[in-house]
Computed example of a mutant assay.
Amino acid sequence: MTDISAPLTGMRFSKGHGTGNDFVLVADPDGDRNLSPEQIAALCDRRRGLGGDGLIRAVRSRHVPEGIELLESNPTAEWFMDYNNGDGSRSEMCGNGVRVFVHFLISEGLVALGAGEELTIGTRAGVKVVSRTDTGYRVDMGPWDFIYPEAREKGMDSLVDAVGLPVERPALSITMGNPHTVVALADLEALAGTKLTEAPIVTPVPPFGTNVEFAVPAQPLVTDDVGHISMRVHERGVGETLSCGTGACAAAAATRFWAGSDAPDVWAVTVPGGVVGVRFFPGPDGREHVELSGPAVIVADGVLA
């Protein structure tokens, strides 16, 4: 560990992932730990720390200002997912991280959740309802929308330049409570040839930055009423990750929009770390919601030396 993590000696942690999107997880029910961005970045460092795309702190909502606000209208949201990117920067939420967060709560004995049961949790992107399944978890990610309303008519709203692409590509910006910019590529060869070690340049970039997804539609796009796409992602504050749950939802939403009114509501999104499911359905608020489904795994528990 680096020197900046020395004050954390003795802190218990877990390591988990959802389709390869990996996290350091810390249980802090009473909100006693105030981890600095520098400490989080040190813990997530893959060479000198534990390694992770981000850090998730499990804290009761009443100990977090954003959680207190959510409890006013959602009193069952006892637990808050305090999420930071691997560089220490704060993020609204993480789709794969939500599943791993709930799995962590269960493994720590902080909640009990059987197959088919639901748990409401708080995030900086609002409350999320998580259901346990026989193979993992599914999450009502809430409504999706266009970051730029005019994109509904134009179909595109920005240009993306990335190493490995011969020219800038048109893109569509989607919000899932956090920002995404989706680029369609023609084939898997172009997807593999795009270099994501450097952050893609998005013009114009959304106000709080953006995650950038590169998506390739399958041929045929739809099989047995399920749409299929392959995706890679560069996450703001992290770099390329093996998976991104909100990014998979955004990529499916963009591809479905481009495909037109006959496009299906159910999608399988292949990412380097596996496959996640995405489903569009009418939400209780009258808006179209997105459900994300996939596995969650805890791979290790330990204590900082």
Results as ranks from 00 to 15, higher is better:
Phe101Thr: 03
Glu117Trp: 15
Gly286Pro: 02
Gly116Pro: 04
Arg124Tyr: 13
Phe257Cys: 13
Thr2Lys: 14
Val24Cys: 08
Pro272Cys: 04
Ile147Phe: 06
Gly302Trp: 09
Gly95Val: 11
Pro166Lys: 13
Gly277Pro: 12
Arg99Pro: 05
Pro200Glu: 09
Glu78Gln: 11
Met1Glu: 03
Glu291Gln: 15
Gly142Leu: 10
Glu168Lys: 15
Arg138Met: 09
Glu78Ala: 13
Ala41Ile: 08
Val205Asn: 07
Leu55Ala: 03
Val26Ala: 01
Ile298Met: 07
Pro65Lys: 01
Glu288Tyr: 13
Val238Gly: 07
Arg256Trp: 01
Thr203Lys: 15
Ala27Tyr: 10
Val160Pro: 00
Gly54Lys: 04
Pro282Cys: 04
Gly245Asn: 06
Leu165Phe: 11
Leu71Pro: 14
Val266Leu: 09
Leu304Met: 05
Glu189Cys: 02
Asp22Arg: 12
Ala253Met: 15
Ala42Ser: 12
Val226Arg: 04
Lys128Ser: 05
Val205Met: 13
Asp161Met: 10
Ala6Gln: 03
Gly209Asn: 09
Asp134Pro: 00
Pro149Ala: 05
Phe101Gly: 03
Ala199Glu: 14
Ala162Gln: 12
Asp22Thr: 12
Gly54Asp: 10
Asp32Arg: 15
Leu55Pro: 01
Leu43Asp: 08
Asp32Lys: 15
Ala27Ile: 11
Asp161Val: 13
Gly239Pro: 06
Met176Gln: 09
Asp53Tyr: 00
Ala115Tyr: 05
Val299Arg: 09
Gln219Met: 10
Asn74Val: 04
Val276Glu: 06
Ser230Lys: 14
Gly247Ile: 00
Gly10Leu: 06
Phe146Leu: 14
Gly95His: 08
Pro37Glu: 03
Leu43Asn: 11
Val303Trp: 01
Pro207Ser: 12
Cys244His: 05
Asn96Arg: 01
Val275Asn: 00
Val129Met: 00
Ser230Asp: 12
Ala259Gly: 07
Thr2Glu: 09
Val238Ile: 15
Leu8Phe: 14
Pro75Glu: 05
Pro200Asn: 08
Thr241Ser: 00
His289Arg: 10
Cys244Ser: 15
Ala190Cys: 05
Gly52Arg: 10
Phe13Gly: 02
Gly164Ala: 08
Trp144Ser: 02
Phe257Lys: 11
Phe280Gly: 15
Val130Ser: 00
Asp3Thr: 14
